[in-house]
């Protein structure tokens, strides 16, 4: 039991389960999944489907956070990627042409790689602090997306493009397979030694350099990967609604993604990272959003409700909060181990 509680996925899973149970009480058919024309339907499937862009962005963010970095530009990259793909398709003679869609998708993916590279260069070569370096693209990228769409919403009528974000494969939403593919790629960091390097650079950059780790390359590659994830998320998002909105697509994604990473157990101080934790964190946030819509919280206060739940989740995760809370129930206690490394003041 003690080991179970200590496992890094324990609390995230509890929260997710609690949220799902809450929904079940609220609408008894929440867990029901039905089959129509070879597709599965149901709230759980929706959560997976609508949550997949966030999961993707959060996966990329996890690796960035592990290097003690942060990427604020993911929301803008989501918007740019969707906008570029939709613009390219809408300009084509036949919007259903497979070649056109492939070119458009590759264009968007390529561009997001370049944007990730830009972030990475600013952080690793120019040595700018990650939060500032990526803030540049966060602001500028929104402008670029608006330029691409001309301030309008570009709509496309292409069944083939729509398939990416709303089609289904083997009864499941196609987006789920995209997520699984990207997750597997990210998990490759564990198969190779890249994961070790990411963690060591995040934990102690100077010592890693002295140990011969190519810190610059490691940092560069996580930002590129994060850009890639955001780009693919942008494709899923725009394809799901068959349109691109430069103003609103991917808005606040960076915050949700960072939250998902933290809920999943990865510390913003860098070092150890947990990809499965992140996926669960993203699912928690998506479930929360769905729940808030479903129980009909008035739109003015949805953000407040969300903020409170997030606060609660973070408190539950905090060891010292749990200890302080538990202490109130015990008569004799010692406070939690404090890892105080600062000089005593």
């Amino acid at each position: 039991m003690g080991r179970l509680v200590k496992h890094h996925l324990f609390w995230p899973l509890c929260v997710l389960a609690a949220l799902l149970l809450f929904n079940l009480c609220y609408s008894p058919d929440f867990f029901t999944i039905t089959m129509h024309d070879g597709h599965l339907y149901g709230s759980l499937i929706d959560i997976l489907n609508f949550g997949s862009p966030l999961i993707l962005v959060a996966i990329g963010m996890t690796l960035v956070v592990a290097t003690k970095g942060i990427d604020l530009s993911v929301g803008s990259i989501v918007a740019i990627s969707g906008a570029v793909a939709c613009l390219s398709i809408s300009k084509g003679p036949d919007q259903n042409s497979l070649v056109l869609i492939l070119i458009s998708v590759l264009l968007a993916v390529g561009l997001s790689l370049v944007l990730g590279l830009w972030n990475g260069l600013l952080v690793s070569v120019a040595g700018i602090q990650p939060i500032i370096a990526t803030l540049i693209l966060m602001v500028a990228g929104r402008g670029i997306a608006q330029l691409v769409t001309g301030g309008q919403i570009i709509t496309v009528t292409s069944a083939k493009y729509a398939y990416i974000g709303s089609g289904s494969l083997a009864t499941l939403p196609f987006s789920i397979f995209v997520v699984i593919l990207v997750l597997l790629i990210a998990l490759l960091t564990r198969r190779t030694a890249l994961g070790l390097f990411i963690e060591s650079v995040g934990c102690n950059p100077t010592a890693s350099l002295m140990a011969g780790v190519r810190a610059k390359w490691v940092i560069l590659s996580v930002y590129i990967f994060c850009g890639l994830c955001a780009g693919i998320a942008g494709l899923l998002l725009s394809s799901n609604v068959s349109s691109a909105d430069g103003n609103n697509a991917g808005l606040w994604y960076e915050l949700d993604a960072i939250l998902a990473v933290v809920i999943g157990g990865t510390s913003l101080n860098g070092g150890r990272y947990y990809l499965t934790g992140t996926v669960i964190g993203a699912l928690i946030i998506q479930t929360l959003t769905t729940t808030i819509y479903m129980i009909g919280v008035p739109p003015e206060i949805t953000l407040v409700v969300k903020a409170f739940v997030v606060l609660a989740v973070c408190l539950i995760q905090s060891d010292s909060f749990r200890a302080a809370f538990a202490a109130r129930w015990k008569t004799r206690h010692y406070p939690a181990e404090k890892e105080i490394t600062r000089h005593v003041s």
Binding site: L196, E199, S200, C203, N204, A207, M210, A211, G271
Partner: peptide
């Protein structure tokens, strides 16, 4: 500051 990677294990620190 220049030696150990604190959050990693002894094993990982040795093979780094």
């Amino acid at each position: 500051t220049e030696g150990i990677i604190g959050d990693l294990t002894v094993r990982e620190n040795i093979i780094l």
